[in-house]
Structures are given as structure tokens and as C-alpha cells.
């Protein structure tokens, strides 16, 4: 009687173990393998730097941030000051006075094109026709369902053949060094300032490439 029961229990036990293993395997293979927690950590202090990372909170500053903006009246290394205010008169003055300090060569143009592609083409379009992906109809399907995304107002084309007007007078194809630089620096209309994203040298490379687009 007892032996009988044991034989039965053996089977049961084996079955249970097998089922348990199969279940764990199944559970661990399910889901998208993402988690809200960092999991088990050992000596967490080795992950947190002693020095402050730029994006860390910092009690040493009044505003609690590590990344501070440079004090007024100072220039970061490698930056030259742009002494023109954000007004129409100063824009026109910059257009007359400021010239691109870089020489036009293939290397600068190539870099200018790469920078234009990264920082400008999303609205201005890869060819500067004002037809970037943000200006076109597009929709997204995600956890909230499918919906249409808002279009960004298209900027005017740089191409000479398109004869588009600049909102501050003249054709887009006639914008000078200083005017384009002023616009990158301060932004205009729906365009924001890109001064924090591009160094002065990079801005001039973009200006150089925009002149290439104006020839089209």
C-alpha cells in the first residue's frame, strides 16, 4: 500500500518539477524584457561619480544645477562674440558688415552640408526647399493608437528658381552671410535660436552651405 503510494508520488513529484521548470522558462521568455527597476546592484556608489556630471543636481549652485550658463560678459573658449542685437536694423547692419571668415573649400562645404542635414533639414528640407519631413503630413501608431501629427509651418525655399520672399525683405536667395548668421543666432518667426547647438565656426560652415543652396 505504502509502496504503491510512493510510486504514485514519485510520478507526481517528477511531474511537478517538470511543470515548475517549464513554467519558469515560459515566464522568463514572456514580456518585452524591460523593467522599471535597475535590478540588483552592488556598491552603487561606484556608479555615481565623485565629480559632478553636467546633468546632475548640484547643491553648490543657487539654481541647483551643475550645468551653469556662462556668466554675463564672458565668452566660452573658441567662441567669438556676435555684437548685433535682435532687431531689424541690426539684422540689416549684420547683413552689410559681417562676412564669413572661413575659406570656401570642399572640406568646409562637406562639413556644412552634414551640419545642415542634422540641424536644418528637418524643416528646411535636405535641399533647402522648405519641404523637410516636419512640414509634411505624417501619422504615428503607438500605445495611444494611431493619430495624425501636427505639421510645422514650412519655411520659404532658398532656391533662386523658387523666388521666395524673406519676411524681412528681399529674396531668400539673396540673403547675405551676416543675415543668415543673424538668423541662426537669434532665430526668426517660427524658427528658434540655434546658437546653443552650433558653435560659431559650425554656424559659418552652415552659412557657406546655404549659399550653395541659393544657387539652385
Amino acid at each position: 500500500m505504502i509502496e504503491n503510494m510512493l510510486a504514485m508520488n514519485k510520478k507526481n513529484l517528477l511531474g511537478t518539477v517538470c511543470a515548475a521548470v517549464a513554467l519558469t522558462a515560459l515566464v522568463s521568455s514572456c514580456g518585452d524584457k524591460t523593467t522599471r527597476s535597475t535590478g540588483l546592484e552592488f556598491s552603487r556608489n561606484m556608479y555615481d561619480p565623485l565629480a559632478f556630471n553636467p546633468d546632475q543636481p548640484n547643491a553648490n549652485f543657487a539654481d541647483g544645477k551643475t550645468a551653469q550658463t556662462p556668466p554675463k560678459g564672458t565668452d566660452p573658449v573658441g567662441f567669438t562674440r556676435f555684437e548685433y542685437a535682435n532687431t531689424l536694423e541690426e539684422y540689416e547692419r549684420a547683413g552689410r558688415e559681417v562676412k564669413n571668415p572661413l575659406v570656401v573649400n570642399a572640406e568646409n562645404l562637406e562639413k556644412g552640408k552634414a551640419l545642415f542635414t542634422t540641424y536644418c533639414s528637418v524643416c528646411h528640407g535636405p535641399e533647402g526647399k522648405g519641404d523637410g519631413p516636419l512640414t509634411k503630413d505624417r501619422s504615428v501608431t503607438d500605445s495611444r493608437g494611431t493619430r495624425q501629427l501636427e505639421n510645422f509651418p514650412p519655411p520659404p525655399s532658398y532656391h533662386r528658381t523658387d523666388k521666395a520672399n524673406s519676411s524681412r525683405g528681399g529674396f531668400m536667395a539673396d540673403l547675405t552671410d551676416g543675415k543668415i548668421y543673424h538668423t541662426i543666432y537669434y532665430g526668426h518667426n517660427s524658427m528658434g535660436s540655434h546658437a546653443s547647438q552650433l558653435s560659431p565656426e559650425e554656424r559659418w560652415k552652415v552659412v557657406m552651405y546655404v549659399h550653395e543652396l541659393q544657387k539652385k
Binding site: K33, T34, T35, R36, S37, G39, F42, Y47
Partner: peptide
């Protein structure tokens, strides 16, 4: 997997 944050989605 100690200290490995693969799949971490805060």
C-alpha cells in the same frame, strides 16, 4: 546580472 541594467525602462 548584478549591476547590469539591460532592459531598464524608468
Amino acid at each position: 546580472n548584478v549591476g547590469v541594467h539591460e532592459g531598464y525602462k524608468p
